[in-house]
Amino acid sequence: MNRPLAKAALILIGMYIVLVYVLPLFTAPLPASLIYLYLALTLSAVLIYYTISGTTLEEFMGPIVRFLSGVDQVGPAKTARLLVLIVFPLLVGWQTYTRLAPSDLPPPENRTIHPAPPGEFVGLSNPFPKTPENIMMGKGLYAAYCSPCHGANYDGKGPAAPGFNPPPANFRDPGTIAQLQESYLFWRIKKGGVGLPVEGMPWKSAMPRWEVELPDEFIWKIIMGEYDGAGQSPRTWEEEE
């Protein structure tokens, strides 16, 4: 008689263990809101499954009804019922408190790390050939203009880096310039933090608007030097197909 309930409990517990402990072994931990959503979906599926016919409904609900009604209960079952009846209002009270209690935490930031560039910066290709001389010049310009924040080792750990929020990009991280085309870097370097759209939270980026200080030629060569120095390659159209 109690098999449906045991199965439901096992499914819920199993799903919780998978979401919270197993999945993070393979990927980034899921946000709490998503875990909650998946558990709610699992619970809904279990309820739908067991209430789809009269027989399964009785199998599933029967123990619950008998337990809650308390008729003919003795011993541990009686104690457990009393416990549930006391704990439920307390949990409701606790939830009311946690929802209404003033939070001391700042609002969450939903910053888009790589927002879409304006149309005129899409698909541009570097007009300068990747010769050793151009790469060398790019690295020299990088050392002069970029390394104070992005670091002499292209790792985002320059002497000026610790004060900024968000921190300067680490070009050695495969999640930064390796994911981007040269035209994207050209946009970011040229327009800087003030050129970001609203989803990029431009009011916090300290990236200078280099177009007011550097000619395009310097920017394209800095891009070359950046990729070479960081040991990365730009993403190309061919790879996306």
Partner: peptide, 30 residues
Amino acid sequence: GVQHSCNACILVAVFVLSVSIPLAMASDPP
């Protein structure tokens, strides 16, 4: 009596899990 106790334990487990997990995970701590 044993069956009732078993039912009671499972019910309490399902109840506590279904109520406390959402509560505990209501928001990501900073």
